[in-house]
Design a protein around this nucleic acid. Structure first.
Length: 184
DNA sequence: CGTGTTTGACCTGCGC
DNA sequence: GCGCAGGTCAAACACG
């Protein structure tokens, strides 16, 4: 599995915006990289035509950076059809952020409940598992330190919030995402 | 007492 | 079939 990061998301639809807002509304996200998991952009015919030339782009894989393809989890098999990611039995698309930060918290105003912590073989660091604690919202995230650079935090979001973050709604500089047509 | 965290056990899929 | 690895559960615990 490959994924990409940079300033220009290769697949700029609203599926990512909840997670994007979540991260971008955090002060420490200014130094972050945006990562799009490869299976999410499946069916986007040509990567060469994507506007990623000017953005920082890299290809990671499971072995080198500890990202799971989710193949071992019954809820993590994600297929993308017609440009829209479909997560069979899961909660939606997955987006990862690589953030240069001392903190591992990028809640963007959402409330997260930690439900697991695991050491993974692909990384010397512990991986933390969180669920959105808002009722009816099943968004999950994984947080771990970059194995190559401890100053970076890798946060992987899975799914789309079915509610808005108060933080995002009232304070995010890109809050227009949640409005119809009014760009601020 | 309610909410969140910790942590060992358990479940599931994959590779050999 | 077995072992491994990643992900989740849930009881115990901590804290306000």
């Amino acid at each position: 599995m490959d994924f990409y990061f940079g300033n220009s998301p290769p697949y700029p639809n609203n599926y990512a915006h909840n997670s994007l807002n979540m991260a971008l509304s955090s002060p420490e996200i200014a130094l972050s990289d945006y990562l799009m998991l490869d299976d999410y952009v499946d069916h986007q015919d040509s990567r060469s035509s994507q506007s990623t030339e000017s953005s920082e782009k890299a290809t990671f894989n499971d072995a080198t950076h500890g990202f799971s393809t989710g193949a071992t989890s019954k809820n993590n098999n994600i297929n993308c059809k017609n440009g829209i990611n479909e997560n069979k039995g899961g909660v939606g698309p997955r987006i990862a952020f690589r953030t240069k930060s001392e903190l591992e918290i990028m809640d963007g105003g959402y409330k997260w409940r930690k439900y697991g912590k695991k050491s993974v073989k692909s990384s010397p660091n512990l991986r933390n598992y969180y669920k959105c604690s808002s009722g009816g919202c099943s968004v999950k995230k994984r947080v771990e330190r970059d194995r190559d650079d401890y100053s970076y935090v890798i946060t992987t979001y899975e799914g789309v919030h079915n509610h808005e973050s108060p933080f995002t709604t009232y304070y995010s500089p890109i809050s227009f995402v949640h409005s119809d047509t009014t760009f601020k």
